[in-house]
Amino acid sequence: MTISPPMDVDSLPPDIAAGSCVRPILEASRLSISYPGQRGTVVAPLQDFSLAIQTGKITCILGASGSGKTTLLRALGGFITGAPTGGVLFKGRYLQAPTPEIVMIFQENNLFPWLNVRDNVGFGLRYRPWTGEQKESRLSSIIETVGLADAIDRYPHQLSGGMRQRAAIARALVTEPRVLLLDEPFSALDVTLRRRMSEMTNMIWSALGTTMVMVTHNVEEAITMGHRVVILGYQPARIILDEDTSDPEFKDRYGTTFLALQRRIENLIE
């Protein structure tokens, strides 16, 4: 990982510098990102944007198409660097490149088709400073956790969509990253499978406590999975709702609290 020296806390935006009792692990700090569009125009999805990601929580980001959700997620992962102003702070330092400590999971094309589940999940292990036994133990444990122990020798084309995404999650988690970024990971799955995958992700979070940031289009998924739901307004992205959804009342799909927030978010996105 390439990172710059520690930054001066005084230069942080007031909302981040003030912080909460737990220091955020990952922060977009006055981040601006722009790139050339069609016919000489400039697309600027993020302008002076700040967002602090709380350690050990699941943060779900929602917003209309083109609101800059994926751009934000990629920037948080260190995949977009060289912003003209601001940047992404990871553990208090500017992030200059992707790091194995922040791992991203995509909607598709996550698994290498020439490797079986075991080798796909263990792909990143050789870059970790652990002994062979430790690697083996972590590999077995994570494959067991995501329920793929019986499919360890199967190749991606022999797996269902849900199994593929579970393998991708296992591969991301086996290296024990500090942050897991999920870019609409379940959008290609049917409703039943989506719910099962959400429950499984929550279960993994309970077991490992990994900080997660998930971009999704699904309001229900965001409320039930996330401890916090952030709604982005249209370009340049701005936060139009930042709701703490960790209360168990939000997890009852038929409860009034859940339905009220769902309606509110849907109105905001429309």
Binding site: F79, P100, V103, M104, N109, F112, Y127, R128, T175
Partner: peptide
């Protein structure tokens, strides 16, 4: 797919390792 390279880089593979793996 660009995701293949992103995943490999993200998990710690160097450019040479990304080529042969």
């Amino acid at each position: 797919p660009p995701e293949f390279h992103t995943v490999a880089a993200n998990l710690g593979a160097s450019p040479f390792e990304r080529f042969y793996r």
